[in-house]
Design a protein around this nucleic acid. Sequence first.
DNA 1: GACAGTGATTGCAGTTTATGAAATCACTGT
DNA 2: ACAGTGATTTCATAAACTGCAATCACTGTC
Lengths: 187, 187
Amino acid sequence: MPRWEPDGVERLQAAAFELFDEQGFEHTTVAEIAQRAGLTQRTFFNHFADKREVLFGLSSEFQQEIVREIAACADTLPPLDAVVRALQAAADTMFEERRAAVTRRHKIVDANPELQERELSKRAALTDAIAAALHARGLDPEIALLTAGAGMLVQQTAIQRWTQPAESRPLRELLSAALHSLRTTVS
Amino acid sequence: MPRWEPDGVERLQAAAFELFDEQGFEHTTVAEIAQRAGLTQRTFFNHFADKREVLFGLSSEFQQEIVREIAACADTLPPLDAVVRALQAAADTMFEERRAAVTRRHKIVDANPELQERELSKRAALTDAIAAALHARGLDPEIALLTAGAGMLVQQTAIQRWTQPAESRPLRELLSAALHSLRTTVS
DNA sequence: GACAGTGATTGCAGTTTATGAAATCACTGT
DNA sequence: ACAGTGATTTCATAAACTGCAATCACTGTC
């Protein structure tokens, strides 16, 4: 038999997800999470930089996907449209199929300021990555950052709607709508 | 003589500012800050919710000013212009005169991820406050949030430039320029 | 088949952040 | 005089994180 049960990281993530859902983030200790996963507190911190990170395993994957899509996009497409197309591609791949899980996670994060803070931090990192990808396409750095910020604004507006129970339109469509809203709002 | 030296809060802020500047945020303990201010660690936490908050004393004041300006603005002005005008008014009051201090603080925050995270959090709170102020003017909540987000994008772009040593134009002017950049970028 | 090397996990000691509860005591108003 | 206020302090404690050394199934090599 193997020395340890496999998939330690996934088990920790699952345990954390459950416990945060049951008791809330701040009433759950890292020791508790580790115990439910059949591991040690020390091992938790070997895998995650801090208690919050356990909820953000997918964000790096998401970021890579977006950047890849932007790089793959036709150079003739206006920058902001390129960003939104990339978001739409990622929406299909990473959001649409896991609506239940995404909404559940959204609810957990929404219930705790520390987690919201980390979410903002991830969003900022994604913004910078998008800006870098746009800059690689030849866009001026400052305009690139502005465009990336506008793209994230679109993303936020769309996700906001998409996570509401009443909403049934696909995220892809909501992204288009949000982009249109932004354009009329800003002009 | 008074039982305690006056201005405990200010002394803590000043001590923290100095120490973060000298040794960096993470190599400074709360006990150290309190000691330099002639107070106790416990007293520090009586005044500030956590170690980071000591650097964000002005953000609530800033937020109030912005919201006040927006409410005072003519109802005929397009929403985004109202927001940028409010930011310009606050820029004159709270930034232009303290350029040195603002830049120093900016440098400290820039050097530490935890502080950046908190900065983002304050920014998000300000965004929400602006959106609420716009909603109070009759704007649809979702459009209000989008407009507020666009306004903060303008603010960020302008501050970014303003804190660069080479830049000499007043913040007010940079805000106008950034708004123009956003408009051409998004359309 | 022995055997050195790898790497995920663990135990433990220690620092730091943060909080709750009770005590102090100059100052205030009556 | 004297009770009440409130900023501060002391003490105790939980919980988050870190550094370091040790474990030991697994891997490949000779």
